[in-house]
């Protein structure tokens, strides 16, 4: 089989499984809504304008939601012996990584696509979605951020599922590894949702984009290369 075809086979399996069970997508969506409820309790959203903190709150919710989903993404593989099947198959380990990572990326993105409009209605007073100049950097930032989260998350989740701590390890290892992009993604989303873009903010957004792209490329290549180290033998 060609690499692309191999990739598609694994990816299709994950998508089909999710479409049939809707196991993750529902709990992730409800979780992200509940997080917003907590934001209201914490900041009294009705009395205070949260636009300033929009970027930070958005990604706080998204990172927790993503980790919730990523933690489960290997449970089926492990508990039902699918891992052994994958490892026995004549598929390159890097392809397994890319396929699993794309599956997680799609899952996270779908939930976010539903959650962002709700978040905007709840907390953001500035109609950033009506301004193309604000909308496209926002979307690009979210996509790049998701790529980083899904990439690192898939790698660490594979490693975590083979240890005795399992779910606990993903946040403990995942947060510090993702730290370099947390600042940039919050700045991009926050600046765009906030609406006022001065010269300094524009410069910061440009710098953030560069860091995000560099991080995504370097980590993606490095993790695909060493993925066979975290898979079972």
């Amino acid at each position: 089989m060609l690499p692309l075809r191999q990739l598609w086979v694994i990816l299709k399996k994950d998508i089909l499984l999710e479409l049939r069970t809707k196991e993750m997508i529902l709990s992730m969506f409800i979780f992200v809504l509940l997080t917003m409820l907590v934001f209201d309790a914490a900041f009294m959203a009705d009395k205070n304008d949260l636009t300033t903190f929009g970027g930070g709150l958005l990604w706080l919710a998204f990172i927790f939601m993503s980790f919730l989903g990523l933690n489960r993404s290997f449970v089926h593989e492990k508990d039902e012996g699918c891992f052994d099947g994958l490892l026995l198959s004549p598929i390159d380990r890097s392809i397994i990584y890319v396929a699993k990572m794309l599956g997680n990326l799609i899952l996270i993105s779908v939930v976010e696509a539903a959650a962002i409009p709700i978040f905007t209605i709840f907390f953001i007073r500035y109609p950033y979605y009506a301004h193309w100049d604000h909308l496209w950097p926002f979307v690009v930032g979210v996509v790049l951020g998701n790529f980083a989260i899904a990439g690192v998350g898939t790698f660490v989740a594979t490693l975590a599922i083979n240890t005795k701590r399992r779910e606990q390890l993903l946040p403990i290892l995942g947060f510090p590894l993702l730290y370099p992009v947390m600042g940039p993604i919050v700045i991009i989303s926050g600046t765009m949702m906030g609406g006022k873009i001065g010269a300094l903010a524009a410069k910061q957004v440009a710098g953030s984009m560069q860091i995000l792209v560099a991080y995504d490329i370097v980590f993606f290549v490095a993790m695909a290369m060493i993925y066979d180290m975290v898979l079972g033998e």
Partner: peptide, 25 residues
Amino acid sequence: ARYSASIGILGYITVVFTMISTRIL
């Protein structure tokens, strides 16, 4: 050894990126 070597490598890349990103932002 395998798992921690992978984090040993990724960890150092993270350190470099953290320094760049905190300095720029």
